[in-house]
Write a protein that binds this DNA or RNA. Structure first.
Lengths: 291, 291
DNA sequence: TATTTTTTCTGACTTTTGTCAATCAAATGA
DNA sequence: TCATTTGATTGACAAAAGTCAGAAAAAATA
């Protein structure tokens, strides 16, 4: 690693450290130390299991217990025994707790808004922040099966289509393409997979069942901030696992030579180029893979 | 500000917060609380004036005094009275302090290296980190006069030339251009200005004195991470101030239509297009401004 | 059923960080 | 020169955060 790269990384670190400190001080403004505020924040975000909060915030069990009781005394949370295991305890916000949580959320939102609004070109800043956030947390990426109607899936697809429209010289209209019926991408005929990192979908891939003796891989997309990280490999691996689970033995896909990185990716991932197998107007490169 | 933009910013914030926490924990591994470690770090970075450290770390004077004495007792720093004002005190590292400081530096470097090395495309990550760091700290940008031989100035110029070589269809060779003698860009004939943020030069501009009744503005460059922030305005304002200070009444500059954003910038900054005034092979657009 | 393990709670600490007022020495300004 | 201001130190606290061992209750296991 070059000296310059390290220095730039550390400069970045200094910059965000002072930003983090600024948010912490604004939290202090609500008259509560950071400890209880962090616990309240975790509960508000849906982490109700006390042991889970403890693991997440790396707190000693004694300290956790006291912080929780403090919040109970303030009337912000109630703690009840878990149904399945009466030793474990579940914390939830009272109405007053929800109000207080909302106030912290407003502070966070205000800070985020302030960062963005003092930048003359927020979209560039957002893209840079996405890239950094994805790089730092990439190991936590989870691949999950969702219905194609999931709003996050729809968001991925919309972004994907917009990108195709930009890269194809004649634009792209999804209605001219063979738009798969949603149920072809759901079990038992197929599947739709989402790569999710910290609540944000950073990639997707669809497996579309057909009656022609093969299934099609469709809508493979990776967010710009997550490219070159090997996410496409993860997604395709998961798609192949799904296909095997559904008893599918042959996969086909089509793509376009205007997307050379995609063509290159399939070539080196064990796909074999085959002749055109549909009359879709957009693709001009066709692949097949036997599982 | 859209909901989505706020959510992305907060996701970024969460990602870097855990990274910051990881570095703090690694600092704790040296058996010293964060307070003294931060003071040691500040002194090691050349902030020797105690009042300055105090302001920088936002510490109470009593706490600061105790932290310093703790470091003195450990034999890591010595504190002496300032020459100019015997009330103020200067802290410096002992040899043992330098060793300890180096250990902290190694931890920081290791963490920075780890972030970079687990990314398959570090340069993209670095550029994103630069953009974020510049956006967060832009207000702290300082414009300072340096000799053109300053290594930071040389670094800016090298990057500038590389960029020109990429954008000019026939490439760019600075030796074919009228390479100004260094002394033409130093007082009393001219000046060379650097925009510096957190130790990194993010832009430059040169004022080159001539004997022809005008001075030339040369080498106006803004780092990609700082573009669209209005830095060129700041630099040009500073250049004009320098020129006025040197008794210069007329400024000229040349640029190239392959740099449309530069041409646009000068047009809207009160520069008037004039006919070619030199035989430099690269420029094809010429401007003049009276102060 | 008896024993062990897990989860939380409590009491009794310590360490770290932050605050405030009093004091002292040096510098500043009238 | 003498009062005032400034920068650092000190004592006396207080709040916040972290640690640890024991106890109680529930669950898991033998």
């Amino acid at each position: 690693m070059t000296i310059d790269a390290i220095a730039r990384t550390r400069r970045f670190h200094r910059a965000v450290t002072s930003e983090v400190g600024a948010l912490d001080s604004s939290f202090l403004g609500r008259g509560r130390p950071l400890g209880p505020a962090r616990v309240l924040h975790a509960i508000g975000n849906g982490v109700s299991d006390v042991a889970e909060i403890r693991a997440h915030l790396k707190l000693d069990s004694g300290l956790m217990s006291r912080l929780l009781r403090g919040l109970e005394d303030e009337g912000l949370v109630t703690v009840t025994a878990s149904d399945s295991d009466a030793r474990r305890r579940q914390a939830q916000l009272t109405p007053a707790g929800k109000t207080e949580f909302a106030a912290y959320e407003a502070l966070s939102d205000a800070q985020a808004g302030a960062i963005l609004s003092r930048h003359p070109h927020p979209e560039a800043l957002l893209q840079a922040m996405d890239l950094v956030a994805t790089a730092l947390g990439f190991d936590r990426t989870a691949i999950q099966r969702v219905p194609p109607s999931d709003p996050r899936a729809q968001h991925c697809l919309a972004t994907y289509y917009a990108e195709l429209a930009e890269r194809f010289s004649g634009g792209f209209d999804v209605n001219l393409s063979a738009d798969p019926e949603a149920r072809d991408m759901e079990p038992p005929r197929g599947a739709f997979l989402l790569a999710v990192l910290d609540g944000l979908a950073i990639g997707c891939a669809g497996l579309k069942g057909t009656d022609k003796g093969y299934a099609e891989v469709k809508r493979v997309w990776v967010a710009p901030s997550a490219r070159r990280m090997g996410l496409a490999d993860l997604l395709m691996q998961a798609i192949e696992d799904e296909a095997r689970g559904l008893g599918i033995r042959t996969l086909r896909l089509d793509t376009n030579s205007a997307l050379p990185e995609a063509v290159r990716f399939y070539r080196k991932s064990g796909w074999r180029e085959i002749p055109r197998f549909n009359d879709d107007p957009y693709p001009d490169v066709f692949f097949e893979k036997h599982l």
